[in-house]
Nucleic acid binder design. Structure first.
Lengths: 212, 212
DNA sequence: TGTGTTACCGACCGTTCGTTCAGTAGGCCG
DNA sequence: CGGCCTACTGAACGAACGGTCGGTAACACA
């Protein structure tokens, strides 16, 4: 039995613009498939042979598009972190009350997580074994600090409860956000906004039924 | 540079009872070290050579205690799931209002997660590549269903807000619980109960400051 | 038709992987 | 001392790994 499903259709390139030369995969379509397979089998558990099978080519063909397995990981992790940091730069994340900025970043993170599911999933599973992984973890740490600062500010504003450690609270909050990658399926199920709504409701008002 | 720190002291066996024969590791001490290294480097990213180095022996010595790498994973995953299911069998998880039972299971899960940190962490990272992993995922699914049922029951009781899908809510809740393995350090930082308190407070009342 | 450009194949390399096995070392007890 | 038990070594195995290289295939455009 094959370890992966049918090979990906190379025709479905991101940008429709036809190019000269023999048709087939390009660097982007390889990255897209690689990220998916990395998630299915884990990065270390995925061989170049696995990738080749998923792409419908031989493994030597992969090296025509990328320098190696490490580059695929690096590009995937960078893509995920870039998208997350872009959220923190949006207007809703930089102006207004801290609690509202926090909500904006949380909603934005859910959106990024859903849009770039394979890449973010990969990011969240990184252990820091290699230099590439260490660099990604370092960027993640900066992101986490940013969130913790928002929570601290919200406590000072009096908008966020002061009886929990902001560092712990921010970690729990984004633990909830990040856990979405464990069960979200793009096809069926709730849409991105519905999940974000449920998340925000639980995170800010709690599970307990409001006494009307 | 060595990939792991100094070898584990085999003298620190779980049960103090001296046994006859040459002193050294036994199956349990090997499992304990293996689970720790699996978490540091990932299961697939850990070679038997890595384990041997962490144990302070050659890799062939490991096969004197266990049948292979797979058995180490299986025993670790079983240990974690057994501990989690034990919580769901406790009195506090089977009697009383659903919302209180839910709180009991959440607090119990935090306790198990902290007590058996390496094993539970390993469990939460399983992808389902092999039969051993598939079996662990199946048991996890049963656990998750149990939680979702508790949330549904709490909604019926009127204790839990009805404006979020119970399936989504239960997943987000345990996403928050499980995320603890990502940052909890046994030595420093908050104790198990303090984390559980913060978690329950956020989960049930929310982050927003209560209007006194 | 032929030239440029892009994509791919198949054979191969050195290394590392998990695992096996025959033999050895070091404790306790008689 | 000599069994007896448990823990371990060192060399080796076949398989799988990531990666290389010279040659080839298929398109656009002229």
């Amino acid at each position: 039995m094959a370890r992966t499903s049918a090979p990906d259709d190379p025709a479905a390139r991101s940008t429709g613009r036809r190019r000269s030369g023999r048709p087939g995969h390009d660097a982007d379509s390889v990255l897209r498939v690689a990220a998916r397979v990395f998630n299915e089998r884990g990065y270390d558990g995925t061989s170049m042979e696995d990738l080749a099978r998923a792409l419908g080519v031989t493994k030597s063909a992969i090296y025509h598009h990328v320098s190696g397995k490490t580059e695929l990981l690096r590009r995937s992790l960078d893509l995920a972190m870039d998208a997350l940091f872009e959220v923190t730069g949006e207007e809703g994340a930089t102006t207004g009350r801290a609690i509202d900025r926090l909500e904006h970043v949380m909603r934005g993170s859910v959106r990024v997580l859903v849009e770039e599911l394979p890449h973010v999933t990969l990011l969240l599973r990184v252990r820091g074994n290699t230099d590439v992984e260490k660099r990604a973890l370092e960027r993640r740490r900066r992101f986490d600090h940013l969130i913790a600062d928002l929570v601290r500010e919200g406590v000072v504003d009096g908008d966020i409860r002061s009886d929990v450690d902001p560092a712990v609270a921010s970690r729990l909050l984004f633990g909830m956000v990040n856990s979405i990658v464990e069960w979200y399926k793009p096809d069926r199920g709730l849409a991105c906004e519905e999940i974000a709504d449920a998340l925000i409701r639980i995170a800010f008002q709690g599970m307990r039924a409001p006494k009307d």
